[in-house]
């Protein structure tokens, strides 16, 4: 756990509102964007983020000082995101979840379609298998270490690193093929 995270937890014990604001200030936006990149829809990302933090605050007592606090929060967020994706898959009876996510990308109200290159990059990420998607997002956007990523995706650090590099190669290939 980083010194900053230890400080936040310590403040939470003395002044719950101040600690809450500090924790939200540090993690709310990164966690929302992490979930959003996975579920695409703003409404679903909002629900999953809210549920993530409710769970985080109700289970803070379970965090151990030796553990990475960031990895713990991201793991809860990832579970919430996949819970939504599983429910979506069950609703649509569509076996190809990545296609379903790309459809969401094309339909969401809060997507800027004028920035085509970024839309294409998200399509490339969404076309990857879940572990590669997670490894890429957590490394590229959230800049987490491979140890933390491994803890989140349930793999070894070496496997997390391999997943990231394979994902990056696939994304570059996708972008090469889809560039105008």
């Amino acid at each position: 756990m980083t010194g900053e995270d230890k400080d936040i937890l310590s403040i939470l014990q003395r002044n719950s509102e101040k600690g809450f604001r500090l924790l939200m200030g540090k993690y709310q936006e990164p966690i929302y964007w992490h979930i959003r990149r996975l579920v695409v829809s703003h409404d679903d990302a909002q629900d999953a983020t809210q549920e993530t933090f409710v769970r985080v605050f109700r289970n803070l007592g379970q965090v151990k000082k030796k553990d990475s606090f960031a990895a713990w929060i991201y793991r809860i967020a990832t579970n919430e995101a996949f819970r939504i994706l599983d429910a979506r898959k069950a609703e649509t009876m569509d076996l190809d979840a990545s296609q379903e996510n790309i459809k969401s990308l094309m339909a969401d109200e809060y997507v800027d379609y004028s920035d085509l290159e970024t839309v294409r990059l998200q399509e490339a990420i969404l076309s990857l298998p879940p572990k590669q998607q997670l490894a890429f997002n957590l490394r590229y956007y959230d800049e987490l270490g491979y140890e933390d990523i491994a803890g989140i995706i349930g793999a070894t650090a070496a496997s997390a690193k391999a997943n990231y590099h394979i994902a990056k190669e696939k994304i570059i290939a996708y972008m090469n093929n889809h560039s105008e």
Binding site: Q13, R37, V40, H42, L60, D115, T118
Partner: peptide, 28 residues
């Protein structure tokens, strides 16, 4: 850079909703 956007004031509102829902007393 990402194509995703959020409504105006979204994060502030969500923070308040979470604060209400967690009962103002995080379990530490």
């Amino acid at each position: 850079r990402m194509p995703y956007k959020v409504p105006e004031g979204f994060f502030k509102e969500m923070e308040e909703r979470i604060w209400e829902e967690t009962g103002h007393a995080p379990a530490v």
